[in-house]
Nucleic acid binder design. Structure first.
Lengths: 192, 192
DNA sequence: AACGCCTGCAAGTGCCTGCTTGCATGGTTG
DNA sequence: CAACCATGCAAGCAGGCACTTGCAGGCGTT
């Protein structure tokens, strides 16, 4: 069992760094410290191993949820956004690789964006409640605001390691700024 | 000369779709309709050919600029954003692949994000003028707003083809919504 | 006619790829 | 002790990879 887990682990790491074609069965076996033959005894093919390894990474960690009931809008949203950013950044290499490999292996796409959909729905729920309670103004699309905020955070997280000179400010600052702009756009802090 | 151009062209297309390792010299030659040997007579190696092809695509098209002087803020920003979105989406496959390949070929990164930096500076210039003229309010960071808007547009453009079910609305609608939220965040339309 | 240049073709180099086979070995369980 | 199971090792397969060599033909210029 632990051989299998080691193989899945190494495979995910190599795939994130070198893509599908760059992840060879020889190298997986070598880095996992097992014989290449053992790899084929556990998984019937390279394809089976890779899809299982990717699926595992995609499903193992669940995103933070926003509070059931909004109270400190800015604080809660900032904490949530920071959590999302951290989680995405920890997987940024895998995400970038997947985005490129979806073209040749489209079967992976649905699994990968499952988490994003969940977080999206959660944020919309939270903001809807906030609007009902008068914490934000009546105008502006909550769905659009959520998509925009998540897009901004997502892109920041996956490009930060790889094109650092493009991002003018530190992660913390940019997240605060994105949340601030989102709240302004939705008219928070006026009617309150 | 036209042999060389054909090779560069085919190489860029294949690289966008199949990545560095997936773009083989055999396949390039075949799709360009030339002998594989001819390829090596024009470029001293696969690496030289690929980097030249990518560099060419990255530098050949320049992004639209915003007007020198802002007047119709919403209209001008929306047109600009739509132009950015179209341009990015046309190259989305290449961009996704590059983001993944930067890890193994970091020398490509500076070239690739040059255009983004230009557009970024242009938008900040435009918004600064708009603020001076009182078209938008005095609060909120213009740099942050620009980064957020561009991030949102960029991510929308490069994921739309590949994870279509994740994007809830049509391109036109999402761009309008992003621009609308940015203007709200910067307090446009109030003091006007 | 002679030259230089671009190109195609056939063949081959050494290396890497995913994957298979046969056999030996060690540990765990009955 | 015997049966089983996971694993290692050595070897090999057919195919693909980047890249090279040698030779021949077609083209335009002089």
């Amino acid at each position: 069992m632990q051989t299998k887990l080691a193989l899945l682990d190494v495979t995910a790491r190599l795939f994130a760094d070198h893509g599908w074609r760059g992840t060879t069965t020889r190298r997986i076996a070598e880095e996992a410290g097992v014989n290449e033959v053992t790899l084929f005894r556990h998984f019937r093919s390279k394809e089976a191993l890779l899809t299982e390894a990717i699926r595992k990474v995609a499903t193992e960690s669940h995103p933070d949820r926003l509070p059931e009931v909004p109270s400190d809008l800015r604080g809660e949203l900032t904490a949530w956004a920071a959590g999302q950013h951290d989680r995405l950044r920890a997987k940024s290499s895998m995400i970038r690789t997947c985005l490129a490999e979806f073209e040749e292996h489209p079967e992976l796409a649905p699994v990968a964006c499952e988490g994003a959909m969940e977080s999206m729905a959660d944020a919309v729920r939270y903001l809807t409640l906030a609007r009902e309670r008068g914490l934000i103004g009546p105008d502006g699309s909550l769905e659009a605001a959520t998509v925009m905020l998540m897009n901004a955070i997502f892109l920041d997280a996956i490009t930060r390691d790889v094109v650092p000179d493009c991002q003018p400010v530190s992660p913390g600052e940019s997240i605060d700024a994105f949340v601030d702009l989102s709240l302004r756009a939705l008219g928070a802090g006026e009617g309150r």
